[in-house]
Design a protein around this nucleic acid. Sequence first.
DNA 1: ACCGTTCTGTTCTATAGCGTACATAGCGGA
DNA 2: TCCGCTATGTACGCTATAGAACAGAACGGT
Lengths: 251, 251
Amino acid sequence: MEMCKPQQNHLLAALSMEVKERLFSHMEWVELPLGKVLYESGDTMRHVYFPTDSIISLLYVMESGASAEISVVGNEGLVGIALFMGGESTPSRAVVQSGGHAYRLPGQRLKDEFNRHGELLMLMLRYTQALITQMSQTAVCNRHHSIDQQLCRWLLLSLDRLPSNKLTMTQELIANMLGVRREGVTEAAGKLQRLGVIEYSRGRITVLDRHKLEELSCECYAVVKRETDRLLPYTPSTMPDERSIAPKFRR
Amino acid sequence: MEMCKPQQNHLLAALSMEVKERLFSHMEWVELPLGKVLYESGDTMRHVYFPTDSIISLLYVMESGASAEISVVGNEGLVGIALFMGGESTPSRAVVQSGGHAYRLPGQRLKDEFNRHGELLMLMLRYTQALITQMSQTAVCNRHHSIDQQLCRWLLLSLDRLPSNKLTMTQELIANMLGVRREGVTEAAGKLQRLGVIEYSRGRITVLDRHKLEELSCECYAVVKRETDRLLPYTPSTMPDERSIAPKFRR
DNA sequence: ACCGTTCTGTTCTATAGCGTACATAGCGGA
DNA sequence: TCCGCTATGTACGCTATAGAACAGAACGGT
């Protein structure tokens, strides 16, 4: 048996003997044929996969059926971060892009390695997953949606983070954020203004019809919003039974 | 200390009294004027920011100077995940997009909350950060680069995860991954073939000139590669011990 | 050796967004 | 009050990519 396998998984290889032995006693060696779906959008993940000579694509599949790759995972990584990030699932699909093999570990076994970590950590991880969702959706949106749709998404994301329905933001600035021309924003904003959805002048934008804005936006806003709400429900910490909630974060 | 009631930070609000009190004894209340840069690409972060009534944009600034927003952070989150993810910095810039305030915590204080967590966790987190980098860069690439460039990037990312210089992948499949038309891939691949960079037929692609491929690719590949190498150097620690694997799962 | 299927190549038109140039309009300081 | 600056509006040609339709080419089972 060769000592230095050419296609071992790098993450597993980097672990100490102690941890590795504990994990490997529960590890399965599985074949991953091309096209196999490891998990669908929203699926509760049961295993994490450590690819060795296979490649897995994380895709976001849109309502239209069109898809875009969010990221790609090979022997440098693992599939199923949501299991330890705390979200248990993601809005993306994992498909085998290049057939091969992987080590597979029941999610529970991975979580067992985490069972001493406190609430702060769990909270951070869950937030991180929400952030990742946003990033992914941004990539998708950049690929597939019009400036008009993206402006709506962007306004809604901003609106959710502000106390009023006004934001101070020149079209030039928005263009930089979206990575488009200022003129493109001018046109899109003009349309929204003509529709009575927003009102603006010299860097002061007032949202008049939020509902319409949501209608005009692409699905990307809703996806991020829904996932963020799911991951971070923000139970008020002033509640007296706060500490009794904490154990639910531990598995 | 003033406890900003209407616009408290949601993450802080969700913490238990115990943890919150420990954190708040080291917390600063800072003003964030519009346009202030919280950190530049590659900067070692000293603080994490919990915005209350401000919005911070995470931007990736390209070599050309053009920029694209990776994500946006408001009172639902925090700026500086790299501090607890283990990377200490990111390739992105954080700019105040909407002036306001935030709670600021020295990074070390946050890390103190993490100091009992084992090596597995740290490894996972570092990987996650690398993945996040890839996602971010995908968003950037989708916005700004041609199909030709994106194909090069994609081939390189795949190549790095495979043992040989051959990959089995139809143009149709690649098109799905990149979120573009199959015809677009056909054209881009044709150009590469004519340049002698690759050779392919019916789903079998051989990379002949990797160096050229890197030249033709946009910067996005290099950014992700460099960051991944930095976060996960895979130091030649203990090699895997075959005997620790359950016999039936050995290769 | 054949035939159907699956890949790849080509060509047409349509359009969104870019680059560029320049015009207008509102605010704010002197 | 005026000037200058910044923000917004508009217009024109250009290009990359989408959408669609179809032709050729190679593989693989029977």
